[in-house]
């Protein structure tokens, strides 16, 4: 997973949100609500769709916001979840990244590329990851 996490606020317009993703080289970012809690995830595809086909609504003279194109609610995973389980959740939720939450706190983001890296390293279980790192399970 990637950590620390780059997040966007739900009331961020699409253009600066896209610029933030591009600047960090990320494909998605967790979305925080006005109270700072995790409420969704927004991807580069969501942002493109918002620009190519803006969401239908009244008040079209104001820019579209992240909250109008994000995926919500968002599923989360834990650090020790097996990668196959994370992969299945990504597919079921139609997302390419999932927030990693530890005791209610956002600690990272796991992406499809992270899963590919695990596959390439033959690390499909957390026990295999610990072995590579020299940590006893």
């Amino acid at each position: 997973m990637s950590s620390p996490v780059v997040t966007v606020r739900a009331d961020t317009p699409l253009v600066p949100a896209a610029a933030l993703l591009a600047a960090h080289g990320f494909t998605a970012a967790p979305v925080l609500g006005r109270r700072g809690t995790l409420i969704g995830i927004v991807t580069e595809s969501d942002l493109i769709r918002g620009r190519v086909a803006p969401p239908a609504r009244s008040g079209a003279d104001t820019p579209a916001l992240v909250e109008e194109v994000m995926t919500t609610p968002v599923e989360t995973v834990r650090r020790d979840d097996p990668v196959a389980q994370v992969a299945a959740l990504m597919l079921r939720s139609c997302v390419r990244s999932l927030p990693v939450v530890d005791e209610g706190e956002l600690v990272g983001v796991v992406t499809r590329r992270d899963l590919l890296r695990a596959v390439a390293r033959h690390e499909e279980t957390s026990a295999q990851v610990r072995r590579r790192r020299g940590v006893r399970s």
Partner: peptide, 8 residues
């Protein structure tokens, strides 16, 4: 996505 599907 295709590789992730095989994994999942």
């Amino acid at each position: 996505r295709d590789v992730i599907t095989a994994l999942a």
